[in-house]
């Protein structure tokens, strides 16, 4: 945008500059109302005293963060030792989200590559086919996955019929089911950015590599992957971040036996605990983690941009 303005004549550039401030106003207003203010509110709440059964008392305290990091025993009167409960919940969520991301990448990259190498005419059709299931609400898709995975569901019937398994496998209410659910929920977020990157890739580079006796694997590794890396990273972030906060798949497919970050936070507001400051604190910790990931991405992007120039 800055480049466009500089390219115009002197006076015109000034006009744009002035107008730009005003033209961007709706963006800033929207961003502050929908992002900045809620996050600040959450930050403030995380340092307030909890009111019994929901709500806050306007007194500053670190109690919420203390609860997150300090284990003071069942009765809350022991000296502080490291609280593993919440760290474990966070670790479990990160692990699940990371696995879902890898799974999506392994399936999503070849899919995207396949679509991008079809004739330009039929590509939109393939993209369309990928997106069709996602017109249906996420809740309904997750419940349908329950039906697929249950003991007498189609998948088990097929496994037994084909002789792959002797007896129906216990798939529902396992981590495996959660994985499948997360993977299925967010796969297109992996496919679409990679597809966009691969489509822009100049395939004559691959031909040149082949002319220079590079094997297909070497070409993929040293030519294609570096070129489409921004798309891959964007896809990974788009899958990882929502998986991290997901609670539909863990609840409906995993049996809700173990809290994930999302369900832990939900419980603080909607459940019996009614501990709003703690819910806010857990959200802030999650938010900081996501921000760190995004910052690493941004720095990488900046570095990659610098290399190109």
């Amino acid at each position: 945008m800055a480049g466009g303005a500089a390219g115009g004549g002197g006076t015109q550039g000034d006009t744009y500059k002035e107008a730009r401030t005003w033209l961007l106003l709706p963006t800033w207003v929207t961003l502050s109302i929908l992002v900045l203010v809620p996050v600040l509110l959450m930050l403030v709440y995380s340092f307030l005293t909890k009111e019994f059964r929901g709500g806050v008392i306007w007194e500053f305290t670190f109690a919420a963060y203390d609860q997150f990091f300090c284990d003071r025993g069942l009765f809350g009167d022991e000296p502080c030792s490291i609280e593993w409960t919440y760290l474990n919940i966070f670790w479990r969520s990160i692990w699940q989200a990371g696995l879902a991301t890898i799974l999506s990448l392994v399936i999503g990259f070849p899919t995207a590559y396949f679509i991008a190498t079809r004739p330009a005419r039929v590509r939109p059709l393939w993209v369309f086919l990928i997106t069709i299931p996602y017109w249906v609400n996420l809740l309904i898709r997750t419940v349908s996955m329950r039906f697929m995975l249950r003991e007498e569901g189609p998948l088990n019937n097929f496994l037994v019929w084909s002789g792959i398994a002797d007896a129906p496998l216990q798939m529902i209410n396992t981590n495996f089911a959660v994985q499948i659910g997360l993977f299925y929920s967010y796969l297109p977020f992996m496919v679409l950015p990679i597809y966009a990157a691969v489509e822009r890739y100049n395939f004559s580079l691959s031909e040149a590599a082949a002319d220079l006796y590079a094997s297909k694997w070497t070409t993929l590794r040293r030519i294609v992957l570096p070129a489409v890396r921004p798309g891959v990273i964007a896809g990974c972030i788009l899958v990882f971040v929502p998986s991290l906060g997901a609670f539909l798949a863990p609840d409906l497919l995993g049996g809700a036996k173990n809290f994930m970050i999302g369900s832990l936070i939900e419980e603080q507001f909607k459940g019996n605990a009614g501990n709003w400051p703690f819910g806010a604190a857990a959200s802030m910790i999650l938010l900081s983690m996501v921000l760190v990931i995004l910052m690493i991405y941004a720095r990488q992007q900046a570095r990659a941009g610098g290399e190109e120039r």
């Binding site: 019994f52 173990n258 019996n272």
Partner: peptide, 17 residues
């Protein structure tokens, strides 16, 4: 009451951790 409830909340969290 609040103090008692907090112990039960901990038991519940420990059950679902």
């Amino acid at each position: 009451d609040q103090q008692t409830q907090e112990v039960y909340d901990r038991i519940w969290t420990a059950l679902k951790k």
